[in-house]
């Protein structure tokens, strides 16, 4: 309710100050920042926490053809260790022979432990607008929330990990599609906006440290939690590319690159976005 009032106030500022557009934007940004601050002061007001709770239940519930839970899933710190696991991802997993981020690793566990088919898990992984995050995303939100307050400590120093970070770096700058877009088109400079939406400078450490640890995040505009894999899928949609597959080498490499940029940044998941 308070949040809605603040947004309304922001809209009013915009309407009143049409003659002074820059002033209006500053006011809008200040109002949104105040909204965030209020939510921060009352951490239980973030609707994303409902999905984190749902995810905890799902992780501990037997499911799939093998009818087992994900409690034996090794997220990198040993089977069943959830606390602090997200802070050390992505990492190389010898059992899978691949570097994996959180969601990719959860898919792997659902496949190998629970017996789900890979093709089914990657088919429609994201909710439509207004729908709650799907089960996989809810579990990811729970796991990420269990690293809340910690700093990103993914070392990414093994040869396989270094190679994936470098691949992510190259993909970040790779221009393609009818608009010549790359991630860098929007995220390689500080203080820029698309319309009124501020854009984080993700190739540099300062803003990456602030932003990357806020995903998965609850998005007010779509009233749902969006995971990092979903966020990247949405970026490629905007880049006029086809549907980015969850857990693909491209999405894993970009996440590894972003987390490397954010090294030492604090995890505050689920975050809250416009």
């Amino acid at each position: 309710m308070q949040g809605r009032r603040i947004i309304l106030a922001a809209v009013c500022c915009l309407l009143v100050a049409v003659a002074q557009p820059t002033q209006a934007q500053d006011d809008t940004e200040r109002a949104i920042e105040k909204y965030r601050q209020m939510l921060k002061e009352d951490p239980w007001s973030n609707p994303g926490l409902l999905d984190a709770d749902r995810g905890e239940g799902l992780l501990k519930t037997a499911a799939g053809p093998n009818n087992v839970s994900l409690e034996k899933c090794d997220l990198g710190k040993g089977a069943g260790v959830v606390d602090g696991a997200f802070a050390e991802l992505p990492r190389f997993f010898a059992d899978a022979g691949r570097v994996m981020d959180l969601e990719t690793r959860l898919i792997w566990c659902m496949e190998t432990l629970q017996g789900f088919k890979h093709a089914d898990l990657v088919k429609k992984p994201y909710p439509a607008g207004g729908q709650p995050v799907k089960d996989l995303g809810a579990i990811a939100t729970y796991v990420a929330s269990k690293s809340n307050g910690m700093t990103f400590a993914a070392k990414l120093d093994q040869p396989q990990e270094k190679a994936v970070v470098d691949t992510g770096h190259a993909i970040f700058f790779r221009r393609q599609g009818p608009h010549d877009f790359s991630c860098a088109t929007c995220h390689n400079d500080s203080g820029k906006r698309i319309r009124l939406q501020g854009l984080p400078y993700l190739a540099g450490p300062k803003e990456a440290k602030e932003i990357v640890g806020q995903w998965p995040a609850y998005r007010v505009s779509t009233t749902q939690v969006m995971t990092m894999q979903h966020r990247l899928y949405d970026c490629y949609w905007q880049m006029r590319m086809p549907e980015l597959e969850i857990g693909s080498d491209v999405s894993v490499a970009l996440i590894a690159y972003l987390v490397k940029s954010a090294e030492g940044g604090e995890i505050a998941a689920p975050g809250l976005k416009r």
């Binding site: 970070v165 470098d166 691949t167 770096h169 190259a170 993909i171 790779r174 393609q176 190739a203 490629y236 590319m241 086809p242 549907e243 980015l244 597959e245 693909s248 080498d249 491209v250 999405s251 490499a253 690159y257 490397k260 940029s261």
Partner: peptide
Amino acid sequence: QQKPVVDTVKIDTAIAAAF
């Protein structure tokens, strides 16, 4: 981050497989 030296064929292959 230091600009890496990456085999562009590898990148192109990853892109072609990701969609």
